[in-house]
């Protein structure tokens, strides 16, 4: 940490190297470029369909104010109008005939005006269209997708934790014939991503009768080489005496695994759990290939299907995208540091 202190000392003396300024400029730009798009997504998701389509877009979700005036069945849109005598007034629009709008004064409904539309500016106020969020829940199978994603993520993570920790336990605690081969098999699977065995895995899943079931998404990725390695590395550091002592006390091998090694490996299990949740929640290619019926879609596949169907209904699409972001945002806020060290230590994602 010495050089840092030296640099700080230099900084305090008021001497700024140009690289310091460049660094802060770069970081500032980074904040806009990295955060901006997501902030823009969230802001846009609260806009009305009409204001989503306007160009240039407004920054905040605004919608035009409307007033109810006695004698008119519909609420009328409010405009700031510049009258012929240069006076500015807030008027409600009754109808528009070509380039002339017929306006009425909300304060004095008998008073009507004819104003050129060019002299009108809509009066708008901040309003959040929460219906963008509530309507898709009723209109589309969105809750279904949400549930499917939650189910897949939870069950798959539990299975991954169980079977990977079992394998890691075997590969870290025991000496047995074929251990090297087993290790090589695990390494081998690292080199075979789903992208190159897409078709045959589909065949296996078909043979198992799982097409269009959520198990088809859960099972193929349940055993992960990265998970086995992560847990094995950790279990190797556990004190052997503890295990020997348990054996002396006639604990069965399963009890040693379940009651001693698993609780001790909890930190590594937590890392794997977080990774598994991320992988599963965001998984795309394999579910896209194996799920063809919309009732078994996961959230990601559902969103992708929506963006094809709802090209004009960005308001729903954006809101649903935001919903799919929520778990990720929670993970990020609470566990960001944790994942960061995980990646830095293992180089996996």
């Amino acid at each position: 940490m010495k050089p840092i202190q030296l640099l700080r000392a230099r900084r305090r003396s008021g001497h700024w190297h140009w690289t310091d300024i460049a660094a802060y400029a770069y970081l500032g730009l980074g904040v806009i470029l990295m955060f901006g798009p997501v902030v823009w997504l969230v802001l846009s998701s609260f806009k009305t369909q009409a204001s989503l389509l306007e160009f240039p877009p407004s920054l905040l979700p605004l919608s035009q104010q409307e007033v109810r005036i006695a004698g008119f069945p519909q609420p009328l849109p409010l405009f700031a109008a510049t009258l012929d005598n240069g006076e500015r007034r807030e008027l409600a629009q009754i109808r528009r005939i070509g380039l002339i709008a017929q306006m009425v004064d909300p304060a004095d409904p008998k008073q009507q005006y004819r104003v050129a539309t060019a002299k009108l500016a809509p009066v708008r106020h901040l309003s959040f269209m929460t219906s963008n969020y509530t309507e898709p829940l009723q209109k589309f199978a969105f809750t279904r997708y949400l549930w499917n994603s939650v189910f897949v993520t939870m069950i798959a993570t539990l299975i991954t934790l169980l079977i990977n920790s079992m394998a890691a336990y075997a590969l870290s605690i025991y000496e047995f014939r074929g251990k090297t081969i087993a290790m090589l098999m695990v390494i081998g699977t690292l080199m075979i991503p789903i992208t190159i065995i897409l078709v045959p895995v589909y065949l296996v899943v078909t043979k198992l009768g799982l097409v269009n079931s959520l198990w088809a998404v859960i099972l193929p990725g349940a055993a992960t080489p990265t998970g086995v390695f992560l847990l094995r590395q950790y279990m190797l550091t556990l004190p052997r005496d503890l295990i020997e002592a348990a054996r002396m006390d006639k604990a069965s091998e399963w009890q040693i695994y379940w009651r001693i090694v698993m609780p001790l490996a909890a930190p590594a299990l937590a890392v794997l759990a977080i990774f598994s949740i991320m992988w599963r929640w965001n998984e795309f290619l394999w579910p896209l290939a194996v799920l063809t019926k919309s009732e078994s879609f996961t959230l990601q596949i559902g969103l992708n299907a929506f963006q094809g169907e709802l090209q004009t209904q960005w308001n729903y699409l954006l809101a649903m995208t935001v919903v799919s972001l929520i778990p990720v945002a929670l993970v990020f806020v609470f566990l960001q540091r944790f994942i960061a060290t995980g990646i830095a230590n293992t180089g996996m994602k």
Binding site: P37, V38, W40, L41, M278, W281, N282, F284, Q300, L303, N304, Q307, L317, L318, T321, S324, L325, V328, V331, F332, I339, K349
Partner: peptide, 11 residues
């Protein structure tokens, strides 16, 4: 890094 590819692409 945590965002799903679908979300990234839609944003």
């Amino acid at each position: 890094v945590l965002l799903s590819p679908v979300v990234v692409a839609l944003v």
